[in-house]
Nucleic acid binder design. Sequence first.
DNA 1: TAGGCTTACCTAGAGGTCCTAGGCAAATCA
DNA 2: TGATTTGCCTAGGACCTCTAGGTAAGCCTA
Lengths: 189, 189
Amino acid sequence: MARAGLTADRLTQAAADLADEVGFENVTVSALARHFGVKDASLYSHIRNAQDLRVRLAVLALAELADRVSEAIAGRSGKDALVAFANAYRTYAREHPGRYSATQMALDPDIAADSAAGKHSEMTRALLRGYDLWEPDQTDAVRLLHSTFHGYVSLERSGAFHSHPRGVEASWLRALDALDSLLRAWPPG
Amino acid sequence: MARAGLTADRLTQAAADLADEVGFENVTVSALARHFGVKDASLYSHIRNAQDLRVRLAVLALAELADRVSEAIAGRSGKDALVAFANAYRTYAREHPGRYSATQMALDPDIAADSAAGKHSEMTRALLRGYDLWEPDQTDAVRLLHSTFHGYVSLERSGAFHSHPRGVEASWLRALDALDSLLRAWPPG
DNA sequence: TAGGCTTACCTAGAGGTCCTAGGCAAATCA
DNA sequence: TGATTTGCCTAGGACCTCTAGGTAAGCCTA
């Protein structure tokens, strides 16, 4: 019998694609095994368990997202960078709903440290260099921006904005305007 | 054999408590049946299926959260109301993590309309009466506030803020300052 | 190129969750 | 008190997770 040539990385990649197709919560070991035409038990040579698979998926997605954002803000600053960052973030979430869900998993602190999670706040911090903010305001602003981006795409996806006719796209652009003006006039402590 | 006296409402209440204990994703029909000392199959006289149970839980949590917020902002306006709203929201999410997770489910539009989901944006809109905002800025601001609140508690819970020593509480208060000043100086379209 | 070693994938099977069909008995009502 | 409703039951199928132990494919070395 020919071998399927499984590796942890190939499984993680396939799981990511599967997540985007059927939703993160529907990524199962069985479904993944079916995709490769092997038995469920065969996967357990490559991954520890189902949770391990999901964590690998989360780490993959965090790295991909960090790359996208990093590319988007390269060579930009100020509002230009803010908009590029935010759009890259939102676009990734829309194009890869399953992968994006994965990024919201609570990871073990040491796994999170190894992953690209840290790179995200670094990049947000880099973004803020175009504004006149210093610690601890900078950290507060990083948290506020991150929260708003995540909250927006999360609520947009859950349908929370569909109850009102105002276009979600237009609201998003105005939100970015608002954040830009907030960063330029950050209230004194 | 004495009956357990199950009803859809009692099941939903118990499911909500269970969610807060073990996490929303671990609320299963089996676990709920165990809690009442009955067989799994018995629950299907009261709920259609597992998904139906989760939707009921979401509707319950949305209503509870709306009540909390509504009580918090009663008789307040401006920044006072903003802070009360935000703290009620965050406190509910921290005290009832499982219930809060439930509120983030994507609901059918008609179920969402029946539920307290609409009350949330109404309340946010009421909040904004203390500021000088008119349509469509008002809707944009409602979405921004909602996003930020949700994003903040969501990220706080996933541990995304733990990598930095700056206190999460202090950042939160500063975020509210920032939002207040943003609403008072909303950039013109 | 034949032997041995590593390892990819297998079968078998236990335990859990979801859900349906059909049955009995408790509660309620006439 | 007899009839109806309904709450909870048993039985069982489908799917998912994961372990133990086995077979054979592919690689390394002599």
